[in-house]
Design a protein around this nucleic acid. Structure first.
Length: 836
RNA sequence: ACCCGGGUGGCGAAAUGGUAGACGCGGGGGACUUAAAAUCCCCUGGGGGCAACCCCAUGCGGGUUCGAUUCCCGCCCCGGGUACCA
């Protein structure tokens, strides 16, 4: 019996029409609330989080869709596995991206953003995501940023937010301060080619460096992509070494040398203590000069009168240079002697103190001990200025007197020389013993240094949540009281930033003039807004409580749904967003607001998608517009193709033609379900393949190997359609549920056509029966001297003897066999190798 | 320079110690058709042979192993990240 008309709800043998069924199911899901789980009564809750997009005017990018589809498959798959799945989405709508676009087209962001969000929603619906639209959020919503402001105040309470005047990165194009993370090679990440300048502004910072060690250590136990963890490790940049103190004074230092040798508190010498950080305390006997960053606070005090003019000129010159050329420009060595000398605490010899721009104020202590013999930069500097080079490390074949014509930086299979009692030690031993020795003399201590800087969250822009602070002349820095939150961002016409270094809000006295919450006197609001990355550092906490007004996250909801079970996103957020999420989560944990320290149980980074071998970009004109493809091929075929074009965690190359492959597969599935029969019995061989396929698709989907899962389904389809037979219902029906996470509309439609009333995603994932999947006979590979010569058909559990007999009986193999084998390698169920 | 990835047919890729190239795209041939599209079937890494078959082949050079795309050592190239970090 052919059951096509009975099975197809439209009646007859209608062809697969993606547009019609996709519309139908998208509407049905919304009417029925299919994708809105009961958050208060879940069974086996599973929180699938995708990185919320910023709603650009261009609409959904293919990269967004690639990310979301991979998330959605994971969410839908878990639902089929019996979990209650929460898959929310929102909009990261504050920030410079949106604001700059608003400036460009001359539309106010308060009008533009809602429009963009509407367009995104439309596109997201078309993509067939299992998104719970009843818990969406937008960071621009006062009901959301009220709590962003609340988090700022909590950090302030905790002593983790502070104000500091300091050198900051200023993008002349954005006209705002950038975090170090937003500076790429000294250029603005949004304005490549625009050099970031150094400016001095009063800014709010978060003390993320207090958490550097915990943030680093926790990585070892986290189930995250290794690539992401490596990026974070690099970014945190832990270095072990020592801080060593050098006593220094301008001019003659013989008295100082005496003092260092014989500490005597009764004698007064006008000296300064310069701490330096080094990862190579073992080389201290080779430290022949010191270098301070030109901005170092001790430079003034140390400069000798005769060097004052030269030092000032150099400092001015450096200050004028932007951080770009300073950091990544020509590595030309420049510097000026201060005229001061310091005492090397190991050799007790005076060494000159220089300033040079190759030493950076914002790393370590802003001062280094230069060891030209064993550091390339120091060597180049010593060469340029005729400073002495001393060898204190010798490799094999060298001794203490072997001359150095370049810095010798090897640390393996070397020993210390010219280092008094430490001669002959290895580098690690020497470092340890010299540090202890210095420590005993009060001149040093072991230190761990981090590259991570505190997080500057101030932005001199309009389009962000105002920082909830009021400055009062009498009372100082005041928090905006809780009952006055949110501090609503006012609608202002002139939101264009200017060059003054203050936010456009600072032009609106009617807004910033407020009474002091403490004394009631006229005071002034903070006019800077906070960094977008603060908005996104806690959004995952908000989703389950998006319908709760009086608190940022409901305790019961949070206990049920968090931490996030699965988070999938791009590695472009490895060091900003993902690190800040971890930091904020740790702080909220430490303050007792939540019970977990780590926000995401599992994070996986997906790869990048390129097109025809090149990066997609507007300037190349090779950007894929998802709408066109969905229109032409259907969302299901498009989703499947995106997942099929390469390993999900590596990304892939998008080529237009290849979509036809996944579309053809869905067409074949469609007709197969229409043609399948209940008559007779299923084919045992096909059923064996089916169970193998169920296992593979389940395993591959779980480990994000979507491309091979799809290939397995295609293989099964090929087996099912081979020959003249009509596929049996029992051979076909489970395939619908395997396909459903990938092609949800087709999955629903075919599932309904079988007479099912409820969504396929509430059906169970087909069970895999290992007994049914097991092959009784296998093709055992036979090699002779390691070369494959054929296969023999044998029982699955054949013995070595049985396999050998079969091999000798097979003429194609036996002709390579010559006499008694020297050795036989038998891998049961796999292969037989006969070695002569 | 350092830290991650990666290098396999015409193309996207599969196989993480056991028949290299599954699956898909493209290409070639055939069936159906008045024709085209769609669909279905066969072929498709290179070389040799009438053929059964044989040889070569996973960036390059070594090594381990009965057996290496897979593991080890040394290079080359491409992508991403960081970059005067002491």
């Amino acid at each position: 019996m052919t059951v096509s008309t009975a099975h197809h709800p439209a009646g007859g043998t209608a062809a697969y029409d993606p547009q019609a069924i996709e519309r139908k199911w998208q509407a049905r899901w919304e009417e029925a609330g299919t994708n809105s789980p009961d958050l208060d009564h879940p069974t086996r809750p599973f929180y699938q989080l995708m990185m919320f997009p910023y709603p650009s005017a261009e609409g959904l990018h293919i990269g967004n869709l690639y990310a979301f589809t991979g998330n959605d498959i994971q969410g839908r798959f878990h639902r089929l596995q019996g979990h209650t799945v929460f898959e929310p989405i929102g909009f990261d709508a504050f920030g410079i991206h949106s604001e700059n676009y608003a400036l460009k087209v001359g539309v106010h962001p308060m009008e533009l953003i809602p429009r963009n969000i509407e367009n995104f929603r439309r596109q997201l619906r078309r993509a067939g995501l299992m998104v719970d639209w009843t818990h969406q959020l937008a960071t621009t919503d006062p009901a959301y940023y009220r709590w962003t402001q609340w988090i700022f105040l909590k950090l302030l309470d905790r002593g983790l937010a502070y104000r500091k005047r300091g050198a900051v990165n200023w993008c002349p194009e954005c006209k705002t301060v950038l975090a170090n993370e937003q500076v790429i090679n000294g250029e603005c990440e949004r304005h490549r080619g625009v050099r970031v300048e150094q400016r001095f502004l009063e800014q709010w910072f978060f003390r993320i460096t207090d958490y550097a060690e915990r943030l680093l250590d926790e990585l070892d136990t986290m189930d995250w992509s290794e690539s992401t963890k490596a990026l974070q490790r690099n970014w945190i940049g832990r270095s072990e070494g020592a801080e060593i103190e050098f006593m220094a004074a301008p001019g003659d230092v013989r008295a100082l040398a005496e003092l260092v040798r014989q500490p005597d508190r009764s004698r007064r010498v006008d000296a300064q203590c310069i701490p330096v950080f080094t990862t190579r305390p073992d080389t201290i006997f080779g430290a022949t000069y010191l270098v301070l960053a030109p901005e170092h606070p001790l430079v003034d005090a140390l400069t000798a009168p005769e060097q004052r003019a030269a030092v000032n000129a150099y400092r001015e010159r450096t200050a004028k240079r932007d951080l770009v050329t300073r950091k990544v420009g020509e590595k030309e060595r420049t510097g000026v002697a201060t005229g001061a000398y310091a005492i090397n605490p190991a050799t007790l010899q005076p060494i000159p103190v220089w300033i040079a721009d190759y030493v950076l104020m914002d790393y370590g202590t802003g001062a280094i001990m230069a060891v030209p013999g064993h550091d390339e930069r120091d060597f180049a500097f010593a060469r340029a200025f005729g400073l002495p080079v001393v060898r204190v490390v010798a490799g094999q074949g060298d001794d203490a007197s072997t001359p150095l014509d370049a810095a010798f930086t090897a640390t393996d299979q070397v020993r210390l020389v010219n280092s008094a009692e430490f001669d002959g030690l290895t580098v690690p031993e020497g470092a340890k013993r010299i540090t202890t020795w210095l420590e005993a003399r009060g001149a040093g201590k072991p230190v761990v240094n981090y590259r991570l800087h505190d997080w500057c969250i101030s932005r001199q822009r309009y389009w962000g949540p105002p920082i909830p602070i009021i400055y009062c002349d009498a009372c100082g820095v005041q928090q905006v009281p809780d009952d006055q939150l949110p501090v609503v961002l006012p609608y202002i016409e002139d939101f264009r930033p200017d060059d003054t270094g203050v936010s456009p809000l600072a032009r609106h006295e009617e807004w910033y003039r407020v009474p002091c919450p403490e004394c009631g006197a006229l005071a002034r609001r903070e006019t800077d807004v906070s960094d977008t990355f603060l908005d996104s550092a806690w959004y995952f906490l908000r989703y389950p409580s998006a319908d709760v007004d009086d608190r940022p996250f409901d305790p019961a909801r949070t206990a049920t749904w968090l931490p996030v079970d699965s988070y999938i996103g791009g590695n472009e957020h490895a060091v900003l967003h993902l690190l800040y999420c971890r930091f904020i989560t740790m702080v909220l944990h430490d303050m007792g607001f939540i019970t977990f320290e780590s926000p995401f149980r599992k994070f996986r980074a997906h790869g990048m998608i390129i097109r025809d071998g090149a990066k997609m970009s507007k300037s190349r004109g090779n950007v894929v517009n998802p709408d066109e493809y969905i229109e032409r091929w259907g969302a299901d075929a498009f989703r499947m193709y995106l997942m099929y074009l390469g390993p999900y965690e590596e990304g892939g190359d998008f080529r237009d033609q290849a979509i036809s492959g996944t579309r053809r597969f869905l067409d074949r599935l469609w007709t197969t379900v229409q043609e399948m029969t209940d008559a007779g019995a299923p084919d045992p061989q096909i059923m064996r393949r089916l169970h193998q396929t169920i296992r593979k698709v389940g395993e591959d989907t779980l480990r994000l190997s979507y491309n091979t899962a799809i290939a397995a389904m295609m293989e099964y389809m090929n087996a099912l359609r081979a020959g003249e037979r009509t596929p049996h219902r029992l051979e076909t029906e489970p395939l619908i549920r395997l396909v459903a996470p990938y092609a949800p509309h087709v999955g629903e439609e075919l599932w309904e056509s079988l007479g099912n009333a409820s969504t396929v995603f509430d059906a169970a994932w087909p069970s895999f029966d290992p007994e049914l999947a097991r092959e009784e006979e296998i093709d055992l590979v036979v090699q002779v001297n390691g070369k494959t010569r054929g296969t023999v058909r044998v029982a699955r559990d054949v013995t070595q003897e049985g396999a050998l007999a079969a091999a000798y009986a097979a003429p194609g193999i036996a002709r390579f066999l010559d006499g008694e084998p020297k050795r036989v390698v038998f891998v049961p169920g796999r292969l037989l190798n006969i070695v002569h």
